[in-house]
Structures are given as structure tokens and as C-alpha cells.
Computed example of a mutant assay.
Amino acid sequence: MSIERVRDYFRQYGMEGRIREVDASSATVETAAAAFGCEPKRIAKTLSFCAGEDIILVVTAGDMKIDNKKYKSRFGCKAQMLKAEEVEPIVGHGVGGVCPFGINDGIDVYMDVSLKRFDTVFPAAGSSNSMIELGIDELEQYGGSSGWVDVCRER
């Protein structure tokens, strides 16, 4: 189970106890915000893309969406999300639980600048009913960030 993979990942830092699970689904921004009692914009959603031969994840604020022009300017190709059935085998977490923690090797993770306006955010933790609250520096560090990008706009 993917949440166990994330727990194992955070265990090396003594942070596995910070992962929270709920009985309800937190697979969408709205359901996650309701389940964990925060504003939807503070949900750090992780989007999975195929960029040529590369797989990349973009972690962005819950009130943002990919801006195709900015994405193409930054990554040199059109934004092409992975198909739902491809996400788990390629990334290591299924749709609704995708996060940058405990992912498969060879995937670059980028943090969108939209996250920088918050002290803490709530990314998923490997399942559609889990999350972990992290400071922005923690998200960058533990999320294995390859850098900050500006590839989103408001929904």
C-alpha cells in the first residue's frame, strides 16, 4: 500500500507520526480541505506529467492549475498529464494519493511558486485519505525538489 511507502520514507526522519488519515476521501482538493479542516488553496496537489522521455511531478497550491504557455516555456513541451492508469506504476502512488514522498526513482519534482505564500501546506501521503502538514521548507526538502517553477495560474 502506498501510504506505507510514505510512512517508511518519513520514518527515516522520525516524522511518520505526522501523517494523518481520515475515514473520508481526500482525493480532491475540496474533499481534502474538508477532511483536514484547511482552506482548499493550502492543499498541495501533486500533478504527474510526461515531458518527452522524462516523468515530472509539479506540486502546486490547491487553487491553481497548469498554465500551458508557462509550462511549455519552462519544460519545452506541451503539458501532458499521465493517464490515470499509468500514474501508480510509473510514480509509485495512485491518483488521489500522489505526493512527492517515497516515489519511484528517476522522477523530477518541481514546486510551483504558488506554494510560497503559505507557512504550511497539506500534501497527500500516498493514499486517497491521508495527508501530512509541512512547512514550505520541509516540503521542498522532503519532497526532493529539483527547484521552484512558475507554471500555474489561478483556477
Rank of each mutant, 00 (worst) to 15 (best):
Q12K: 13
R74N: 08
D119P: 08
G106V: 11
D108Y: 14
T31H: 07
F75I: 10
G14W: 13
D54R: 14
F10M: 00
E140R: 04
F36Y: 14
G147K: 05
Y13P: 04
Y71N: 01
E138H: 02
V98M: 07
S130D: 04
E85P: 00
I3E: 03
G135K: 11
M111K: 00
D150Y: 04
V59M: 01
L82P: 15
Y142A: 01
A27V: 12
W148T: 14
C77W: 05
R5A: 09
E88F: 12
S26T: 15
A125E: 00
P100I: 15
V87K: 13
D105A: 11
R18P: 01
Q80R: 15
A34M: 08
R20K: 13
A33D: 09
V98T: 15
G76E: 03
I19M: 01
C50F: 09
E140S: 07
G92S: 13
D23P: 07
C50N: 14
R20F: 07
V151K: 01
V59E: 02
G147I: 12
C152R: 04
V109W: 02
F10A: 00
F122S: 04
I90M: 12
E86F: 10
P89K: 09
I55N: 07
C38F: 13
N129I: 14
V95C: 12
G135C: 06
N68M: 13
P100R: 06
G17F: 09
E140N: 07
C50G: 15
L57F: 12
S2I: 07
L47W: 09
V91G: 09
E21M: 09
D112S: 04
L139S: 06
D54K: 14
E30Y: 08
K72V: 09
F10L: 00
T60C: 01
S146H: 14
G17A: 07
G106H: 08
I19E: 02
Q12W: 10
D108G: 08
E86C: 10
M131S: 05
I3R: 03
T120Q: 00
F49N: 07
K45R: 08
I55G: 10
K41W: 03
V91A: 12
